[in-house]
């Protein structure tokens, strides 16, 4: 699956990095970095990251 983040919406809350650290990370500049191509085994975690994002900035594309 593909993980998309709208960086116009992202405000670096970092909640996604808490629930899915395998995929999301805040850099030392506090800007979000993430893996775009992610294996199915992480789907549940990424779905949780989608839910936990206060800015509703994360999307999954199958």
């Amino acid at each position: 699956m593909k993980v998309l983040v709208d960086m116009n919406l992202c405000q670096s809350h970092g909640e996604c990095a808490v629930v899915a650290p395998e995929v999301f990370e805040l850099g030392d500049d506090d800007v979000l970095r993430w893996e775009e191509d992610v294996g199915e085994e992480l789907r549940e975690k990424v779905e949780e990251a989608v839910e936990r994002c206060p800015m509703m900035a994360i999307r999954i594309e199958d």
Binding site: S12, H13, G14, A17, V18, L26, G27, D28, D30
Partner: peptide, 10 residues
Amino acid sequence: AAPRRLGWYR
């Protein structure tokens, strides 16, 4: 204004 630092404390 320090979200990455917060992650370390969390």
